[in-house]
């Protein structure tokens, strides 16, 4: 939510003369694209489970922040990134359950609730890091041997395949889609609409939190204030661009990851002020959204609370 505190993945204080245009398009660019796309893929897949069940999840940003903070804090205390990752998943599920209870049981406005969670997650990590680490919003550095730079990347890829399979080849996937398209019919067929929606939202909390955890204990080595810097929303745009389908969504995330990687690589190479380079992913998101939204159709019951007939 916060618009400040975007942390550059690489320092941009390199001297201008040592690199030229052709140095930008290298293996580093490809690797960096994959790295930067990974948190987007994880969050967008999370969004997919929630939105395919009919619940808008604008809280992805806050869920990622929860995952990022929990992962870094727990890894710092325990000294084991796997425990940190697990704690992040638990935190994501707990936070998502607030969204689920408010939206599904109490039929609150889904966009407003999501926004509330995002604002909440600007505050909670900041207060906790102030109390536990005496800092104004960041956790201590985590030593390099306690970082997990590659596993979440592979996990993200596996999850795309798994989501594809679950969505189209399992009874749960069929129910998830049915509930998001036509809850009345699904209900008539004996499906528990609320339970499926709860499951979808909780899965989205877990996945978005993994995406956030990757930011703090994979790409960098600490949590900083608002370190997601809009990635939750970019993931949401990727989900729309990918027509709420797993493989297309992954490709959309790779595109946004590429834009981010390119802007990082360009810093210090091309003589454009850093502010304009930083804008690239955000402008691209708006262009893509405007250009392609007409071509994708949202799940029909998205955003509409389900009221069982009585």
């Amino acid at each position: 939510m916060g618009v400040r505190g975007r942390v550059p993945v690489k320092s941009f204080s390199r001297p201008l003369t040592t690199k030229s245009m052709k140095d930008i398009f290298t293996l580093t660019l490809i690797l960096s694209t994959i790295h930067l796309a990974t948190p987007l893929v994880l969050a967008a897949l999370g969004g997919l489970y929630s939105e395919r069940s009919g619940v808008i999840n604008i809280a992805l940003e806050g869920l990622m922040l929860a995952g990022a903070f929990t992962a870094a804090a727990v890894t710092h205390y325990v000294g084991n990134p796997w425990v940190g990752l697990l704690a992040a998943i638990v935190a994501g599920i707990l936070l998502a359950s607030i969204h689920a209870v408010a939206c599904i049981s109490f039929k609150a406005d889904q966009v407003v609730t999501g926004t509330a969670i995002n604002i909440l997650m600007i505050g909670v990590p900041a207060v906790l890091s102030g109390a536990f680490f005496l800092s104004s919003g960041s956790t201590p550095q985590i030593p390099k041997e306690n970082l997990i730079p590659w596993t979440p990347v592979i996990l993200a890829l596996l999850l795309v395949v798994a989501t594809y399979y679950i969505l189209y080849y399992t009874p749960f996937g069929l129910r998830l889609r049915a509930v998001g398209e036509n809850p009345e019919a699904a209900d008539a067929a004996g499906i528990n609409v609320k339970r499926i929606r709860y499951t979808g939202v909780l899965i989205s909390g877990a996945l978005a939190a993994i995406g956030g955890a990757y930011l703090s204990i994979g790409q960098s080595s600490l949590f900083t204030r608002n370190m997601t810097s809009g990635r939750g929303f970019i993931a949401l745009a990727a989900l729309i661009f990918g027509k709420w389908r797993p493989v297309q969504t992954m490709l959309a995330c790779l595109l946004f990851g590429f834009a981010d990687a390119l802007s990082t690589q360009m810093q210090g190479v091309i003589d454009i002020p850093v502010q304009f380079i930083q804008m690239i992913p955000y402008v691209l998101t708006m262009v893509v959204l405007a250009g392609f939204i007409g071509l994708s159709r949202a799940p029909r019951a998205l955003g509409i609370p389900y009221q069982k007939e009585r």
Partner: peptide
């Protein structure tokens, strides 16, 4: 930053009244 926590919680309660 407690203020942000209160803000988020207030929105949540207003939305899910």
């Amino acid at each position: 930053d407690l203020v942000q926590v209160l803000q988020g919680t207030i929105i949540l309660f207003v939305a899910a009244e």
